[in-house]
């Protein structure tokens, strides 16, 4: 099966500051990122703030231009003009919708940009609103009349209307209340089943990722630490950073926590990433080699599908 999306050696650097007489600093947002997304697959990008996960989503949606490397879409995506290959769903359902536009117009906007006639736009907007669980009258109302969860449904409807093959969803659940999160999560699952759509699902929430993802990329300071199927990643995490992430996630039913297991320190600034392995400043396994040589992303011992960038991977 041909890959829907093929990302090769993607690098993204931003100049920061600088002035008339000063050299700007370079922010290394993404370094040598390569992966593919298959048709109908959900690939999750996991990382903490400063890991570059949002930047990656923007680069793939075409909102940011890579400094080097390729982002190629497979043949499945060269369809009609109105079929934008990628649609985005943002984290904050409150600021992502224009408060002065009616919901129907918001949802139909991708079609308007593609020149679809008004009548067809309205019909398709109502259909897609129905698919995300909102009634047809919603089209005549304004975003402020809806709750956070409903607004995220509207944002999803807008992403769906142009029938994209890939949806980049950047933390679509984290602004929602717990009981609403599961509703939206089920909606995303339903869409995936019905449309064989692919998701690039950006999240810091490992619980959600475990539930939704087929494969997972763990990002740290702009580099891929580990990439593996969900089963492997959660059952046998290979990279020390992945292992630390798993340990950090609070779980119910463990009782009061045992202190002393958490990762030390904090993520360094992407303006001056550490030499060698970018994780060595916090890694419990770090040796001299880690401070000098950048580890290659290669299969974990005995698990060919699980790639890990660590000199001492499990």
């Amino acid at each position: 099966m041909a890959a829907l999306l093929d990302v090769q050696d993607l690098n993204l650097r931003f100049p920061i500051g600088g002035g008339l007489f000063r050299k700007p600093l370079t922010l290394h947002a993404l370094t040598d990122v390569s992966f593919t997304v298959e048709e109908g697959e959900t690939l999750a990008i996991v990382g903490e703030s400063g890991s570059g996960k949002t930047t990656l989503g923007y680069a793939i949606s075409g909102l940011l231009t890579p400094s080097s490397g390729h982002i190629r879409f497979g043949e499945a995506l060269s369809g009609a003009v109105e079929d934008r290959p990628v649609q985005l769903v943002f984290q904050d359902p409150f600021s992502a919708l224009d408060p002065r536009m009616m919901v129907g117009d918001i949802v139909a906007e991708p079609l308007r940009l593609a020149g679809v006639p008004n009548k067809e736009r309205q019909e398709r907007a109502e259909t897609v609103l129905g698919q995300v669980g909102l009634n047809a009258e919603s089209a005549q109302r304004y975003p402020h009349e809806f709750s956070g969860g409903q607004r995220q449904r509207i944002a999803i409807a807008r992403a769906l209307i142009a029938d994209p093959k890939l949806i980049v969803a950047d933390e679509p659940l984290s602004a929602l209340d717990v009981s609403i999160q599961s509703q939206v999560l089920n909606l995303l699952n339903k869409i995936k089943r019905e449309r064989s759509i692919s998701y690039l699902f950006i999240s810091h929430d490992l619980g959600v990722v475990h539930h939704l993802a087929d494969r997972v990329i763990v990002l740290y300071l702009g580099r891929i630490m580990e990439i593996a199927s969900r089963e492997h990643l959660f059952a046998t995490p290979s990279h020390p950073y992945t292992q630390a992430l798993m340990r950090s996630v609070p779980r119910i039913g463990r009782g009061r926590r045992q202190p002393g297991q958490s990762l030390k320190g904090e993520i360094p600034t992407p303006l001056a990433p550490p030499p060698g392995c970018v994780f060595h400043t916090r890694c419990p396994k770090a040796q001299d080699v880690c401070r000098e040589a950048v580890p290659v992303l290669e299969p974990a011992p005995g698990r060919p599908g699980q790639m890990s960038a660590c000199h001492f991977k499990d």
């Binding site: 903490e48 703030s49 810091h204 950090s248 609070p250 926590r257 297991q261 958490s262």
Partner: peptide, 15 residues
């Protein structure tokens, strides 16, 4: 806070 930092802060509060 991020999860790894959250874990540190929870440790600190317990301690």
């Amino acid at each position: 806070l991020d999860v790894t930092v959250q874990a540190q802060i929870l440790d600190l509060m317990l301690e």
